[in-house]
Structure formats: C-alpha cells, structure tokens
Simulated scan of single mutants.
Amino acid sequence: MEGTIRNPDVSSVVVGVDGSPPAHRAALWAAAEAARRERPLHIVHAADTDSRSLYLSVPGVEGIREVGREILRSTAEAVSAEYPGVLVTTEFSGSDPVTSLRKAAGTHGTIVVGNRGMGGFHSLVLGSVGLRSAAGARTPVIVVRGTEEATETGVVLVGIRDERDFDCARYAAREAELRKASLRLLHVWNVLETVGTVTTTLDDMEEIAGRHVQRLKAVSQQIRDEFPDLTVEADAEKSISVPAVLVEASHHADLLVMGGRRSPGYIGPTLGRATHSLIHHAHCPVLLVPRYGHESGSES
C-alpha cells in the first residue's frame, strides 16, 4: 500500500479510480460530497498486483505502480482545482479493488464508484467486482450514474418499503439537508405479489392499498417530526414492477437512496432484484445504505 496516508479517516469519502472517464467523474462527484459533509476525500487506485506477483516481473510491477501513481496524482490535482477546500489523500493498493475500498472505508466511511471502469475496476457495476463491492459493503456505497449534463432537480428520492426503512429515510433526509434539497419518499407495491389469487376482490385491493399507505405515513411522519425544516413529499404507487417505477422517478432526482435487507452489518451477500436493477438503470447516483437485521422475502 502506498499513498499520502496509510490509514484514512474512518469517516472519509472513499472513491475508486482507474483512469477511465466514469471513474474521473465519480472522483469529482465524491469530492463534492466530501465538501458538503466537510469530510476528507480518499482516492484509491487498486492494481491487484499482490495476486499476480508470481506472474509479473519486477519491472512489470514497477510499471503498474508508476501508472497508478500518475492516475492518483492527476485525479487529486483535478479534484483540488475544483474543490480547494477538501482535504485529499491518495492510496495505491496492491490488493483487489473490493478489498481495498472496504479497508479504506473502515467502519464509517462512504464508498463511491463509477458505473463503469477498466483495469482493476472493470465494469464496477455491471461486472462481478462491482456487484460484490455494493452487495457486501458494511458502509454506504454510492454508484455514480446519470449524465454529466443532468440538471439538478433539488430532490433527494428514497425508496421506502415499510417502517423498518426509517433509518434509510433518515439518512436520505440528512443528504437532502446537506444539498438544501427537498425529500421525496416513494413507496411502491407490486400488485402481482399482493393479489395472490384470482378471487381477490376490489375491496381486498382497497384494504391492501390502505395498508401500504399506512406504512408510508408511519415513516414520513417520523421524518417530518425529526426534520421540521425539511420539505418532505410522500407518495405511494402500485405497479407490476417496483424497479421500473423507481427508475422512472430517478429522472427527477439528484440522488436515489435505497436500503438493503440482509444479515446484520451488511447490505448482503447478494443484491435484491430492485436494488440490482437500480444500480444498472437509474438516471441519477444511487446510494445504498446497509440495513441491519435478519430479514427475508425482500426485493430491495
């Protein structure tokens, strides 16, 4: 491991870079996030030379290190030029990208990745490396999606399933406050899952819809009580595809926040169907917040 520091502040915003344009954009996005939070930015380049040491010559390893150092130097310079008030540190790691990012983030840091990459970060979202990085993280992970030309909407969107998503909603509310944005809570329920049988009546559907609305109200009221100065909008929608509604809603948001339901301290060994779809198709950055507790049967 090489860099300006060896043990980054555990509350740092940690971003992985590989020299690709999406990674560069992720670094600038992460710098803006670090500035909002008044936290350090830690830039990591993971070359995965440790696992290939038997197959690489000494000059080959040194060449990889030189390339990595240059990527870190140029990225740090670009970030500092645009965000001079952010403390920037860098790290070259010989470990694999997933291990390097998790170690750098510690127990309280936030990991930021681009939606595509090359080299050690190839297909961070679409490939197995990115999916493992998001699915197994103990800390929040932000996948920078959308386009550079996207216009700010002043909205933070959070997907809510039930009352157990309050911590996720609170996290989103804090993000909205940092951005001086409004917060939209969106609860989507799958009609095909709740109908069950062909004998379901219209009255049954109305009762089911009422239960879903109550779940959303329980969360939204708590958020309004805790964040009285925050503009909060709460919507409940029914659909045959939860991910499709959330992806469409992401058109009108600066950040989409989602919670993961897996074992304690993890987003999980795998991502749920809705979350998996969102990190592939959302039109804005997606922030995945670990959700604690033993749960099953969740899509998110």
Rank of each mutant, 00 (worst) to 15 (best):
G259C: 05
V67M: 09
S57F: 12
G16E: 06
E175H: 13
V58P: 07
E233P: 05
M205N: 04
Y266I: 12
E82M: 06
V13H: 05
V191N: 02
T275Q: 04
I223M: 03
D229Q: 12
I240R: 08
S95G: 12
V98G: 03
S250R: 04
E193A: 12
I111N: 10
E237N: 05
K180P: 06
G120V: 07
H108E: 01
S182T: 15
Y83A: 01
G60K: 14
A137Q: 08
A27H: 07
L126E: 02
V61I: 15
G210H: 11
E91Y: 12
G268S: 04
P269C: 00
V14Q: 06
V13Q: 02
A176S: 05
M118K: 15
R174K: 14
V286I: 13
G127W: 11
L28R: 15
T107I: 06
T201I: 07
R73D: 04
R164M: 09
E149T: 15
A150Q: 14
K217I: 06
V143T: 12
E33F: 04
A32H: 13
R39Y: 08
A172E: 00
R37L: 10
E62C: 00
H280V: 10
A46D: 02
H42P: 05
A27F: 10
L157Y: 06
M1Y: 15
P84Y: 04
A76C: 04
R273D: 01
F227M: 03
R25S: 05
T270W: 09
L124Y: 07
V195F: 11
E177F: 06
G117F: 07
S11R: 15
E82T: 15
L288I: 14
V15K: 06
V156W: 00
I71K: 11
T99S: 12
S93N: 11
R164G: 08
A234Q: 05
H187R: 15
A249D: 01
L271D: 03
L157G: 04
G196C: 00
G109F: 03
A26F: 06
L124P: 12
T153A: 02
I279M: 03
V232Y: 05
E148K: 13
I240V: 14
E299H: 15
N190Q: 08
V125C: 04
E2H: 15
V213F: 02
S133R: 14
S263F: 10
R52T: 10
N115T: 13
V10E: 09
Y171N: 05
G136A: 01
L216G: 12
